[in-house]
Each structure stands twice: as structure tokens, then as C-alpha cells.
């Protein structure tokens, strides 16, 4: 993008030219929350799988598909397999119909199903939230939240929490560079890495927090506390009726689904 195009982009509503990325952030949030909670409340593999597939279907149609599937794959392997191992181990040898034998011990069907429930609940929940976070800019969400009445201080807090996490990471990189420059080994095996990082972790977090004071002053200098309505440089399109409808439908579906799911599954 040239500078001219970049400046021009602020004269219009922000656009990514992808239906899901351009979906109104608040409506999108409501939509994703609904399905996330549906999967959480019902806690059954059928619902979890459905939400998971829905998330996948959405993700595949956005530019974030690659990150989505890689991250989800990693989480699946790391997180879920661990839970499965624990669950199976706990339930191994329980009474009830046997699904299969593992290391000579009976694994009951109920244990397998409870594993599937857990896996797909997590996958569905994470999946739908990732489709949200990977395709929504926090600044646009906050801007829209401000439009629907949230105070600028609250949105500032949300935004600075997110950037705070990034800044701790940055600061850690900085410290590691400084450690290396002084002759402390930070490269090599995991043990070396952990050994070098542990003693500085605490001071880094503390110093990131003291940065808050500076931040407050900086914000104050920008008239952050000025009375009256704040305006926004980045403009987000107002929610279209269809977007509102989708969000409302999702909420209804979530409530109905939760009740039905609890009753019949």
C-alpha cells in the first residue's frame, strides 16, 4: 500500500474484502460467543463436532486459514492427546461395555465417549474463538464497542492488555540480547535457555508493569481525559441488518440448542 492509499483508507470504512473479516465485529463476537458457549454448556461430542466443523468451514473461507489449521492442529496434538491419555488412564478397567483393550486392560465405551466429549468441546470452543480472533482487529472491535456505549477507558484497558502481552515478549527478547551481549549463554539446549530466562523473568514483568506509569502520563498528555465525545480515526461500518440477524439467530440457536442438548443428548 502506498502512503496515499493508506491515508485514503481512513476516509472510508475499513475493508478487508473478505465477507467474514468484514463482518461487524460485535455481531461476530456475539455469534462466536454463542456457539462457543453452546459447545461448552452441552459438553457433548456431537455438538462440539458440529461447532468445530462450522468454525473450520468459516476459517477455510478466510485468509487466516493457514494459521487457523496449523494452530488448531498443534493444540489438538499437544493439549487434547494429553487429556485423552489422562482420562483413559483414570477410567481404564471401569465396569461397563468394553470398547477395546489397551495394554491388556479394558477400556470402557463410556470412557471413550467422555474423551470425545471433552476433545470436541475444547476443539469447538477454541475453533470458533480462533475464527474470531484471527479475523478481527482488536482496534476495530474496540471502536465498535465504543460506538455501542462502552467507555474509552474500558476499551483502552482491553487494547493495552493485549499490547502489554506483546510488550513483555518484546522486552524479554531485549533482555536476552542484553544477556548474550554480556556473556550469558542463552542459545543451545532447553536447559540453558530456561536457566538464562528464569532469573530475569520476574524483573521483566515488574518493569513492564512500571511502564504503566509512563503510559498513563503519555495518555494524559494526549488529552485522554478530555471531556466530551471521542471520535475515531478508523471507521468501522455499522452493522448491517443481516449481520444483526445472524447474531440474533446465533443467540437463539445457542439457548435452544443448550436446552435441547442437555435434555436429549
Amino acid at each position: 500500500m502506498t502512503d496515499q492509499e493508506f491515508i485514503e483508507s481512513f476516509r472510508h470504512y475499513q475493508k478487508k474484502n473478505n465477507w467474514w473479516c468484514d463482518f461487524h465485529p460485535v455481531a461476530k463476537l456475539v455469534f462466536c460467543l454463542s456457539f462457543g458457549f453452546l459447545s461448552l454448556i452441552v459438553f457433548k461430542w456431537q455438538v462440539g463436532l458440529a461447532v468445530f466443523l462450522l468454525a473450520g468451514l468459516i476459517a477455510i473461507r478466510t485468509p487466516a486459514r493457514k494459521t487457523y489449521f496449523i494452530t488448531l492442529g498443534v493444540m489438538f496434538v499437544a493439549g487434547c492427546l494429553f487429556t485423552v491419555a489422562v482420562r483413559l488412564y483414570v477410567h481404564m478397567g471401569d465396569p461397563g461395555p468394553v470398547a477395546f483393550y489397551l495394554f491388556g486392560k479394558a477400556v470402557p465405551v463410556a470412557a471413550v465417549i467422555s474423551c470425545l466429549d471433552l476433545i470436541f468441546m475444547i476443539e469447538g470452543f477454541l475453533g470458533i474463538f480462533m475464527t474470531f480472533f484471527l479475523t478481527t482487529e482488536m482496534r476495530d472491535l474496540c471502536c465498535c464497542l465504543e460506538q455501542v456505549g462502552m467507555s474509552p477507558s474500558a476499551t483502552f484497558m482491553i487494547l493495552s492488555t493485549f499490547s502489554g502481552i506483546a510488550s513483555i515478549k518484546e522486552k524479554l527478547n531485549c533482555v536476552r540480547e542484553s544477556q548474550r551481549a554480556r556473556g550469558i549463554e542463552t542459545e543451545g539446549s532447553l536447559v540453558v535457555k530456561v536457566k538464562s530466562i528464569l532469573p530475569v523473568l520476574f524483573p521483566v514483568i515488574i518493569s513492564s508493569m512500571t511502564g504503566v506509569e509512563d503510559r498513563t502520563l503519555a495518555m494524559d498528555a494526549r488529552a485522554f481525559s478530555a471531556k466530551g465525545k471521542h471520535t475515531a480515526l478508523r471507521r468501522a461500518a455499522p452493522a448491517k441488518p443481516v449481520e444483526k440477524m445472524v447474531a440474533a439467530l446465533a443467540v437463539i440457536l445457542c439457548i435452544a440448542g443448550s436446552i435441547a442438548g442437555r435434555m436429549y443428548l
Binding site: R11, P152, A223, A226, G228, K229, H230, T231, A232, L233
Partner: peptide, 8 residues
Amino acid sequence: LENLGVEA
């Protein structure tokens, strides 16, 4: 400028 409520 946003904080002062200046128009876009």
C-alpha cells in the same frame, strides 16, 4: 485528536 473529538 480523537480524544478531543475532532471530526475524521
